[in-house]
Amino acid sequence: MTDESGMNGRTGTMRVKSGHAQMLKGGVIMDVTTPEQARIAEQAGACAVMALERIPADIRAQGGVARMSDPDLIEGIKESVSIPVMAKCRIGHFVEAQILQALDVDYIDESEVLTPADEAHHIDKHRFTVPFVCGATDLGEALRRVAEGAAMIRSKGEAGTGNVVEAVRHMREILGGIRRLTTLSPEELYAAAKELRAPYDLVAWVAEHGRLPVVLFTAGGIATPADAALMMQLGADGVFVGSGIYKSEDPPARARAIVEATTHFDDPAVLARVSAGLKDAMPGIEIDSLGGSQLLQTRGW
């Protein structure tokens, strides 16, 4: 490519895409719906923001079809902060993704939080210069997304609930799945690939290296500093927080505390200090009280 400065280099390589996610590690990516919220997130130490029109708790409450955000909203947020700006498109909606790439967002989340546009196919993410993050509930789903070109994975959890139990379940599924693969003999890996419904080459790579080939964040239900630290101690590389901040009583203080807890995730003294005096967390939802049709985590194939 030849960019504005006229230098020769290659854009959109997997190293450039997944390398950006490496730089986000140990950080918190916050959902924001206005430039003002984006500035609060940046001042709280967020390493990136996710620009969207409604946070998951409101999508859940209001219902209807949830789509990509208005480009004006995304532009407004891009102009208000210097940290990376991500945006969501619907599963399989490659035209929304084309639009987001044309808007020059730094990362696209092909997200189950929005209403899926395709019930069989995810986006062929290799065709894009902009990197993608995708959700996963287990190792097979994570590897299918990596095969499609995802440069970052996040465990799905159950967005908009303020309940961390599903995030824990999915993180344990993914990392436990990786640990099991590392114990298999070469011939067993072929059967494992079949069971995981994932490409053999990726399965063999994970078995050899004991990790995903891309960064693994967590998402969906993180509401407190302790939740963030729990997910980090379980093995997450970083944290997405959505409804947990702006559905709480004091969003700036909670945002700041969750950033601090993500950096010092294994220091209980720091966690005790930052957990104090935050006022009320978001009320939260029992997962069992949601009918199966209200679960977002089952979207994606």
């Binding site: 490519m1 504005e4 230098m7 959109g12 190293r15 967002v105």
Partner: peptide, 14 residues
Amino acid sequence: RRNAYGRQVASFEA
């Protein structure tokens, strides 16, 4: 100057 080579889609290797 921060981010002077552009946003992520302009990130490159050379």
